[in-house]
Structure formats: C-alpha cells, structure tokens
Design a binder for these strands. Structure first.
Lengths: 196, 196
DNA sequence: AGCAAACCTCAACACCCGTAGAGTGAAATC
DNA sequence: GATTTCACTCTACGGGTGTTGAGGTTTGCT
C-alpha cells in the first residue's frame, strides 16, 4: 500500500487501510473469477502487499473468501410487502443489490459467481438467500403452490441477475432498469398471483 | 477398466470402451464439481486408468472438459414454435435436456455448473445457447421489446434449471415436472405475449 | 512362432499453490 | 533516547497439478 497524503496516519489507521485494500482486491477478483483462479498471491499483488500478510490478516483463503463474498443483510423491502406489492418489491431489492457501485455489489457478485462451484457459496445462496426470502414470500402468496411459486420467484430473479451481471447476455446487459422492471413486473405478478 | 465378460473384444472395441469410460468419469465429475476441483488424476482413478492415458486420448484437461461438457444439438422443438406454442415448447426442451438420465444430461449439467467460472463454458452458454435461441424466439415474439423478452425467457429457464439441478433449492427439486409446467407456462406466456 | 503395432503404465519434471515461521524496520510508549 | 510493540516482508516447505517421454504388455497379423 502506498499511503495517500491526506489520509489519517497512525498505526491503527494504516492497518485498517491495508486490511481494506486486501479485502477490496479480494472482492474484485472473486467477483470476476472463480474461487480457484483467485490466488492469495494475486490478491496480495493487487493490494500491493506480501502474500503472507493476507494470511496473517484473514487466516486462510477460505476465510478471505468468506469476508469478500457475502449477501449484505440490509433492510429488505421485500420482506414487508403484501402480495400485490411483492413483484415490485423484489425487483427493487435485486436492483439495489446488483446495480449499486460499492463494495456490496462486488460482494454479491462474488457470491453469485461462485455459488455453483464453491460449496459454501452455494449453501449461502440456497439456504440463507433463496430459502429465507422464500419463506416470507410463500406466506403472502398463499395457496397450494405457495412454496413452489415463492421459490420460483427466487429462481427467476437469479436467472435475470446472472444473465445481466455474470454471464452478460447482451440483450439483458443493454436493457435499462426501467425496461426490465416494466417487462418483469407483470411476469412476477403472474407468478405470485397465479391465475387470478 | 475391468472388462466385462459379455462385451465385444478386440483392440478397437476395447479402446473405444476405455475412451468412453474416461469420458463418462469426466462428465460425472465436471457435472458435480467445478473445473478446478476436477483433476486429471481423479478422472483417471474413477475410470480405472492411468492419468497419462487421459492426456494421450484427450490432449489436455481443457479438451477433456470440452468433450465432457456441451449442449447437445438435438432437434429443438422450440425452434419451430409459434408465439402461442413457445412457452410449452421451451419447457419441453429444457425438461428433455435436464431430466433425462443419459450422458446428455450430465454434459448439460457440467456445462451449466461451470458457466459462471469457466470462460469457455460461459461463452458457450451465452453465445451458442441463449443468444441462438433468443434470435428465434425474438422473431416470433415481435414488438419493441422482442429481443429483451426473448433473452429473459432464457434467463428464466436458466434460473429454474439452476435452482432445480445445480443449487438444488428444495422446493424446486421436490416439485413434479407437471407442477413446474403448470406454474411456469402462464408465466412464460405473460413474458412472450406481454400485456395482450 | 515371430514380428509389429497399439493400448496402456511408470516415473518424473517443472510449476504453482496455500501456508508457516523467523526476521526487519518503523511507530508508539516510557 | 531506549525499549517495546506491531505492521509487514523474506524465505522456504510440502504437496498437488498438468503434462511428457520412455518403457512394458497385450493384441492382431503373417
């Protein structure tokens, strides 16, 4: 880390800064490549730091990944929506998570990128993201297929997010947020409200 | 390879059989784990063969992956459907590909499993699977959002397939094919037919 | 039987990885 | 200013990887 001029000095501040530099590099690399292709050495190099320091701060590659890739649990408007408001609410939520520009976006992309190949990432997405929201969605959906419909809401959102941010399917990447909202909202409504 | 008793003998047949044993082991492992976690050695061990033989037959790990993970181009009923028949047709197609029990199913799962972390697998899914079918779907959908809607059909199917066969979200795994068809068909219809 | 070819294995190389422990130099404390 | 503390680096180890070339052993042909 080359320290900037106007930043706070002192041992603690300096440490916190390099710690964050390592984490930022890790987030970026895990968001862009698979777990195995990211090496402690490559993260250290991007952070301008010795590989051993990464170990010293984060213990292991696994723990570094855990710190870099996660699903931020901010206020989720979809958890307090009724049936009519659910489609718009889940769209709001997913856009907020994936289309921001901060570290949270990269943490989410890193989690999603690895959820099919990294067991722990897969477990988090399945159990702590999809299933958790599924439980609430099912309760407002009701009916015999409530659980399935709720799970499929998650599946649809996952598919769209992956197409747009991970696989980068051109037509989905180039679409404006409003277009996606306009097209997807009725689709999700059909999913949560069934025939009626 | 331990040869079975009732199988054809001869040099060629034997070779073809071990070649297929290697490929079968590779398909299974690439379908179940990420590219990096599958090793030439583990594939060779599962096939009961020396690692060097895998190299001799397939040239490199990359080529072995290419042979094991692909999207079989069989007759695709979705390519000859009109707008009204598209939802049912794409569902038929995806069920046929993912719910069979042969080598094709594993080849497809292997491709999907790695499409977020393996660049070539990602390219195939994006360009040769999604975009190709998107082109046809868009032509039968029509309207200003045709391309986007067509791409989103692919996104929805991908999300469902991943939930069911890769991430294994319980509610989606346990659902019967008929349930999925019944719930998803109107959803896809809403997507391809828009407001009308 | 004897020879050639092909299937297959052995052993090894060169590389890169995650990780560990000792060491260094600067900042904080007295 | 001396000493301690802590951020940080150097060096290295052990292991696993893809890959290779030479050797062995079975098969098929004459």
């Amino acid at each position: 880390m080359t320290p900037a001029d106007d930043e706070p000095v002192g041992r603690d501040a300096r440490r916190r800064r390099t710690e964050e530099a390592i984490l930022a590099a890790a987030r970026e690399q895990f968001a862009g490549s698979g777990y195995a292709d990211v090496t402690i050495r490559s993260v250290a190099a991007a952070a301008g730091v010795d590989p051993a320091l990464v170990m010293q701060y984060y213990g292991s590659k696994e723990r570094l990944f855990g710190a870099a890739a996660h699903w931020p649990e901010e206020a989720d408007s979809a958890l307090s929506a009724d049936r009519a408001g659910l489609p718009a609410a889940v769209l709001d939520d997913i856009f907020e998570r994936f289309e921001g520009q901060g570290q949270d976006r990269e943490a989410v992309v890193a989690l999603m990128r690895n959820c099919l190949t990294h067991p722990e990432a897969g477990r988090i997405v399945r159990d702590e993201v999809i299933c958790e929201r599924q439980a609430h969605a099912a309760s407002v959906i009701g009916g015999p297929d409530a659980e399935l419909r709720a799970a499929l809401v998650g599946a649809v959102l996952m598919g769209v997010a992956m197409s747009r941010h991970l696989l980068e399917v051109p037509a989905v990447v180039e679409a404006q947020q409003d277009d996606l909202r306009r097209v997807l909202e009725p689709v999700l409504r059909q999913l949560v409200e069934g025939g009626g």
